[in-house]
């Protein structure tokens, strides 16, 4: 570092350098820092896009207090892998039509990306994607979780998702009779 440089000038130089950066730094709830491509972050997350456009990105690490380091690492990993794979126009149109259009099937790499996650990591990621307004990642993670329910009985679903059965025997039997058609093998 140059010793005699005026402080104001150094500050100015630093600001210009930061504005030119092509990454943003995100800080997890437990204080870990992650760098992510600014372009990918803005393209994949409506929340980060808003923060970048609004200048509320902190160069020392933008606080994301709702997201733990494991989930944030996965978010950043996803953004970096995604960086060049889908044109932004396709993403924009898919998020606009989110309410009515059929969901797009995950791509092969996206499947692999969520397949390697532990159960807890997957649920943390789905919440992070939701919080950051990442429609595509939300699609991929929700799709993965829904696949875990396919072809399973209610008992098996409870087991997979560690759900406590809070129905009484009588309630369960009553509903089961109403829904008998849903228990055909498929």
């Amino acid at each position: 570092m140059e010793v005699d440089k005026g402080k104001g000038e150094a500050e100015e130089t630093r600001k210009v350098a930061e504005a030119d950066r092509d990454t943003v730094t995100l800080k997890s709830s437990d204080g870990k820092l992650f760098e992510v491509s600014k372009e990918a972050a803005a393209r994949l997350s409506t929340v980060l896009a808003g923060m970048i456009a609004g200048g509320s990105i902190d160069d020392n690490g933008t606080d994301l207090k709702q997201i733990g380091s494991e989930a944030l690492e996965n978010v950043v990993d996803y953004c970096n892998k995604h960086a060049n794979s889908i044109p932004s126009a396709a993403l924009i149109s898919s998020s606009i039509s989110f309410n009515t259009a059929p969901f797009k099937e995950p791509e092969e790499w996206e499947r692999k990306f969520v397949d390697r996650l532990s159960h807890d990591a997957l649920f943390d990621l789905v919440e992070a994607a939701n919080f950051l307004g990442m429609e595509r990642l939300l699609d991929v993670t929700c799709h993965k979780i829904s696949e875990m329910m396919k072809g399973k009985s209610p008992d098996q679903i409870r087991e997979v998702f560690n759900i406590k059965n809070d129905y009484t025997k009588e309630e369960l039997e009553e509903i089961r009779q109403e829904l008998a058609w849903a228990f055909y093998d498929d």
Binding site: I157, I163, N165, A182
Partner: peptide, 10 residues
């Protein structure tokens, strides 16, 4: 059908 079975979880 899958939705119905999920609804029976809790």
């Amino acid at each position: 059908a899958v939705l119905a079975r999920a609804a029976l979880a809790c």
